[in-house]
Design a protein around this nucleic acid. Structure first.
Length: 590
RNA sequence: GACCCCGUAGCUCAGUCGGAUAGAGCGACGGAUUCCUAAUCCGUAGGUCGCAGGUUCGAAUCCUGCCGGGGUCACCA
């Protein structure tokens, strides 16, 4: 059990006892009480604001109340000191033996350490990438892919039942353009004199092999360019399938596998949109009206036009939103609304979408839609969180990488993965909050120095493994297994730097829960960096300042085993964290 | 004009659903290498947390209003 949960339980029990004795009023609200690591380690191992939060309700001064609570906390076996500080904080210091037991927990749990029951098996749907199937993924897609996948991994570790989903936008005008582009390449492959590709089509070379295969398989069956009726539908489906295969390859290169691909087209054809709109209509949430032009930037071609509108304003949006285009087909919003309804109907009360920041303007309306579609059900109501991913600036030694589709210098996600490796791509994409811009320097991310966080963290893991390899000359293989190390005489770990490292490792479960709670996978990367720093510090202390702190002590095998337990535990926690990010720990870095 | 995001050390950024003396990396300066990987570590310098109010025991964090930067803005996806 996570130590902060443990202490929260102990604290709650103490407060209940105090209430039973009459030292506190009954029925105080404990919900604002925090039990957390203090920012300054000098304040101890654990701090609680309980006295300050309860003071008003208890009719006592915070510090007086703190003294009472601290006295009881001080009686716990695991607590060696309970002090009142500042305005009424209670700072606890925990026994070394308590920390040694945590290390043993880590070794017994393996990379499952940090697994939480917070999610209680609740279903969560994470939808990400959802790139238009019109070509290979670019670096920006890659960020969304990594953020979504790491978030899914994080939620799974936190005990949620996660479904990873990709929404294929295969119903709009863009896939028609794709179909025409493929047809152009197809005629080209047949040897027709096709001239330059018309404006608005996709000029990328990736369609050429697709077209060549088609020409080989089907011959000139579809060769009449003017007879769109016969080929458009076929080419659309063929092209989308080919592009999805391409995207799946790119995703596989990143180590990403989706649980489900949902097709917009299938949803529309199955009547999903009609059903949703009909339902909203029945509730009086759909009407035909004319929208005002946005103030301050009236589009040139603005014309007052009656449209089928959804009353998004009743659910927190700024204006009502159109559901139908002038040609009678559904807007993207209408189909996406049906798609979210579909997810909800499949049992997902919790939905997370990962989008590019340029779609930020759609967040409110989608949340309004989800609210409207789920509020009158018996269930708690759907929750939609949208994570917006900002731009990735691709650099090479600080200089922007020039990218132009036309000039053929466009750098795809695949190019970057091939150049630096999937683990580097994944890690770097998580070194910033999703809504902050990210510089991705192709040269720096493979540098072996401490200003490269990927290297810095991986190096700490490699060092652990190096020590464990060297240890084989002193300790038998049986004694080096995690379970054997858990039984090592851990009480021999008494140096402050050793205990500090265990303490850093012991906040991993809390880090998982905190990051999962707010849907922020980047916190894992920062945690691992801090953890690696604590280890590098201990390493150098042993190597350079105080030889007694070296991990391998030939003359004291009991101490050696205890320290190997520490090293093995650290490797475990690093591996556990990297696993959440989808990054493989490295064994050595020579 | 409206909405969203951002504003923290010279630079790039963290900052735990409101906590104590605001942190890390880079850059600058000064140190550590017979020894488990110096690809690392230790130390010093550097801040009115954009500005002004408000909420309360307590604000970088929440609210309001400004200033500055970015994004989006009826039928595209």
């Amino acid at each position: 059990m996570d130590l902060f949960h443990l202490l929260t339980d102990e604290l709650t029990a103490i407060l209940d006892r105090l209430a039973a004795k009459g030292s506190l009023p009954e029925g105080l609200d404990y919900s604002r009480i925090s039990v957390e690591p203090p920012r300054d380690p000098a304040h101890g191992d654990v701090a609680t604001n309980a006295a300050m939060v309860l003071a008003k309700g208890a009719g006592q001064k915070p510090r007086d109340l703190a003294e009472i609570i601290a006295a009881s906390l001080g009686e716990l076996d695991i607590v060696t000191a309970a002090d009142v500080a500042g305005p009424g904080f209670i700072n606890l210091r925990l026994a070394d033996s308590f920390w040694h037991a945590r290390l043993a927990d880590i070794l017994r749990a393996g990379t499952a350490y940090g697994d939480s029951t917070m999610g209680a098996g609740q279903k969560v749907n994470v939808e990400y990438v959802s790139a238009n199937p019109t070509g290979p993924m670019h670096v920006g897609h890659g960020r969304g892919a990594v953020v979504g996948d790491a978030l899914a991994g994080l939620l799974a570790k936190a005990g949620f039942d996660v479904t990873k989903e990709y929404y294929i936008n295969d119903a709009g005008a863009q896939v028609e353009a794709l179909a025409r582009s493929l047809h152009f390449r197809y005629r080209e492959a047949l040897g027709q004199n096709v001239g330059d590709m018309p404006e608005g089509l996709y000029p990328g070379e990736y369609l050429i092999p697709v077209a060549e295969k088609l020409a080989k398989d089907d011959g000139d069956k579809w060769a009449d360019a003017n007879d769109e009726q016969t080929w458009l539908e076929y080419f659309r489906a063929y092209a989308v399938d080919a592009m999805i295969a391409l995207i799946r390859d790119d995703l596989a290169a990143l180590g990403i596998r989706f649980d489900r691909f949902s097709s917009e087209r299938e949803l529309v054809q199955a009547g999903g949109v009609d059903a949703v709109v009909a339902e909203l209509e029945g509730r009086g949430l759909v009407y035909t009206g004319v929208l005002e032009p946005p103030k301050g930037m009236k589009p040139d071609d603005w014309e007052p036009r009656p449209q089928l509108l959804f009353k998004a304003t009743e659910f927190g949006d700024d204006v009502d939103r159109p559901l139908k285009k002038s040609d009678g087909s559904w807007t993207y919003f209408a189909t996406d609304m049906a798609y979210h309804n579909d997810k909800y109907k499949r049992g997902f009360n919790d939905m997370i979408d990962v989008w590019g920041a340029d779609h930020g303007g759609y967040v409110k309306r989608m949340q309004a839609a989800v609210k409207a579609l789920t509020e009158e059900d018996g269930r708690p109501g759907g929750r939609l969180d949208v994570k917006l991913c900002q731009m990735v600036n691709l650099l090479e030694n600080g200089q922007p990488v020039k990218m132009s589709k036309r000039a053929g210098t466009f750098v795809t996600l695949r190019d970057v993965i091939d150049q630096v490796g999937k683990d580097v791509v994944r890690f770097i994409m998580l070194t910033r909050k999703n809504d902050a811009q990210l510089d991705f320097d192709l040269a720096k991310v493979v540098e072996q120095s401490k200003d490269n966080p990927v290297f810095y963290v991986q190096y700490s893991h490699a060092r652990c493994k190096s020590v464990l390899r060297n240890a084989e000359e002193l300790v038998s293989a049986e004694e080096l297994t995690p379970s054997a190390l858990a039984d090592a005489p851990l009480e021999r770990l008494t140096d402050p730097a050793e205990l500090a490292l265990i303490k850093s490792m012991a906040i991993w479960p809390r880090t998982v829960e905190g990051a999962a709670e707010v849907h922020e996978p980047h916190r894992i990367a920062y945690y691992l960096h801090d953890l690696a720093a604590a280890f590098h510090a201990l390493w150098t202390k042993g190597a350079r300042e105080d030889e007694s702190l070296r991990f391998l002590k030939e003359g004291d095998l009991a101490l050696t085993r205890a320290r190997l337990a520490l090293v093995s535990g650290l490797a475990t926690v690093i591996a556990s964290g990297l696993a959440v990010m989808g990054v493989e720990p490295v064994e050595e870095m020579r």
